[in-house]
Simulated assay, not measured.
Amino acid sequence: MSTVLEPATPAAVPGETFQETLGRLAGAQKGAKGAPAYSRFVNRKLGRVLAAVAFHAGLTPNAVTGISALCTFSGIGVLALVAPSWPVGVLVAALLAVGYALDSADGQLARLRGGGSPAGEWLDHMVDALKIASLHLALLVGVYRFEPVERGPWLLVPLAFSVVSVVLFFGTLLNESLRAQHGARTRAAHTTDERPSVLRSLIVLPTDYGLLCLVFVLLGAPLVFLSVYALLALATGGFLVLACSTWFREMGRLVR
């Protein structure tokens, strides 16, 4: 998930090279505090390259969001409509991963072009919401239709993962909204003495959407895939429970 309403980088100078554009993007990244490892160390860098490509191609941030949606929902469609196999797993993982990188690129491109817009942010979040709500349900449809493993408790895992993912997404957006309403985001933006923790990024890696994208490579071995997928669901659910306690206390402090 990217946010396009970020401080803008200076407008491009005539004749700016691709490498110079990448350099400007690298100097205008959002803070890395709390970001899981794949999103922080892999997806953000991929998004930076794609944003620079889109910038020199004359694409708008909304166009990049649209391409991201096309990749992501193509992968989700394959997941629901095509029998699982190793080639299908690679295709699904690639489409989801590219869609995720482009999801990072649209916000970075908005900064290069002078800043985002409320409409662009709305579009970005709506695509994210649809993606998060449909991905696990598409897997559920695929498992039910093609029965790569015996039907039974396995069908509950995508349902549970869907609930957890939607609640986590909503909670994250709600937190950002309440912090902004009470001025917490502004105060945090001026805090520069806290370096983002690499260890924390690694600890929360199981909750990373980017890691989930890559796990679909294992579709050719359904039992292995579902076992790993269930572990990610469990880890994400545990993270949500702990995060809710922390968020509630934080919101209580905002009232004061």
Rank of each mutant, 00 (worst) to 15 (best):
T191G: 00
A101I: 01
T172I: 08
R256Q: 10
E194Y: 03
M251C: 11
L91R: 06
H182T: 10
A101T: 09
P118M: 01
E6Q: 13
L174R: 14
L50V: 07
A138G: 10
K45F: 06
R48Q: 15
E121K: 03
E194M: 01
P206T: 00
E176G: 02
S74G: 15
G210D: 02
L137K: 06
V164Q: 15
R40P: 05
N175H: 03
L168R: 13
F146K: 05
E16R: 08
V198K: 11
A11D: 14
A94N: 06
V166A: 08
L242G: 09
A221C: 05
A83V: 07
S245E: 13
W154R: 09
G107N: 06
G237M: 09
E150W: 11
W86P: 10
S74E: 04
R44L: 01
Y229K: 03
W86I: 11
G107V: 00
V127D: 06
L199E: 09
K131Q: 03
L130I: 08
S165R: 04
T9G: 15
T172D: 12
Y229F: 15
T191P: 00
A26D: 15
E250S: 12
A189N: 08
R256K: 10
L174T: 09
W86H: 10
L212K: 04
E250R: 08
M126R: 13
T192G: 02
S85Q: 07
G115E: 04
L109M: 02
L96W: 12
D193V: 02
F146I: 04
T9S: 13
G75L: 06
V13T: 14
L212T: 08
E16F: 03
G107E: 12
N175C: 04
P158K: 01
T60W: 06
D103N: 15
G252D: 13
S104P: 00
G115C: 00
G237I: 05
S2C: 02
W86G: 04
C244S: 14
P153S: 03
T17P: 12
L173I: 11
P158F: 07
G115S: 04
H136P: 07
D208Y: 01
P158A: 02
L95D: 11
P148I: 01
A11L: 15
D193L: 03
V92N: 02
G23M: 06
L168F: 12
S2E: 15
G89Y: 11
L240I: 01
A57E: 10
Y144E: 14
L79M: 14
Y229D: 07
F239K: 09
S104G: 15
S104R: 11
V255D: 06
L95Y: 14
E250G: 13
A119E: 07
L234C: 05
L223C: 00
A12Q: 10
R200Q: 08
L22V: 05
C213P: 05
A235Q: 12
L95T: 10
V217D: 05
M1G: 03
M126T: 07
